[in-house]
Amino acid sequence: MTALLSLSGLTVDIPVAAGTLHALRGVTLDVREGEVFAIVGESGCGKSLTAAAILGLLPDSATLRAERMTWDSQDMTRMSRRQRMAMSGPQISAIFQDPLTALNPILSVGEQMTEGFLAHRLGSRSQARARAAELLEAVGVTPAERRMAQFPHELSGGLRQRVMIAMSLMCHPRLVVADEPTTALDVTTQVEILRLLQDRQKEAGLSLVLITHDLGVVAHIADRVAVMYAGEVVEQGSVAQVVGSPAHPYTRALLDCLPDLGQPERKLTPIPGVVPALTGDLTGCAFRNRCPHAHAACAGGIPWHRADTGQGYRCVLAPTSEEAA
């Protein structure tokens, strides 16, 4: 199956006071048509920057390089600014973490919902409003006509995120990138929003890149998952593979942190140690200061193992030894 979005060796450098921050250090992942692709990892591992790179929203100061970065087999690194802009909305759209700050406080829901549709000339103003109303109804923001006249501060957090979801679907995108879409919401709302997102994704048949640091969510709704650590993807595969038989020590450590997967009684064990600074020259495995299996070879080049099943991981441990570990 060919990938809708394919990233290989994606690096992003950001100049900071202490030098250059190697924020992404060779991110490799494929998102297929119609799947839910999760990206997990601790805070600061580069999830949001990966999303920004996909969305073309990296900060101006950042430099992006990639061995391959293709959308539907077209090279994204060679696209002009205008071509990229034309993709934002009709091809790729976004849902952000905090719906209060992500919506403009002084524009009505209706204005914000329709402006992308109109800017891409997908139809008339009344068609835009009709589409917006239809989507708002579908995500449970009712009565749609009245809601469209309202402003973000007049809606609850859950409703705002529903508006964000509806808004992201306005131009019939093929891929929606959702960066921690439920983190800012209370727990009951989180479940509703995730379910809604999943329903919409299925119904529209679109691909969803879901960024989260909750492996429970991943196990629930994702088809495949990439685990990120210190700016790189350390493991990738189907959810059954990665959650069921994790190959990388970091993935295993992450799963150990999870109280409700596995035995219910198991205590939450935070991973000891800290993520290395990404400003210096990093060689070897970035996880080795925290890895229980770290040894001399981990300071050298780290191979990417890829099994026939599609599961892959970056570690010196051979595929067989992982079962023993």
């Binding site: 952000f96 700050t101 406080p105 002084i106 992308g116």
Partner: peptide, 26 residues
């Protein structure tokens, strides 16, 4: 630097639209 500017850009709006409609008005 606000989030809603990023949202506006993610919609593929022309630069001047983001600047005038979303930023300057605020």
């Amino acid at each position: 630097s606000q989030d809603y500017i990023r949202t506006a850009r993610s919609k593929g709006l022309p630069r001047h639209r983001v600047l005038m409609r979303h930023a300057l008005r605020n």
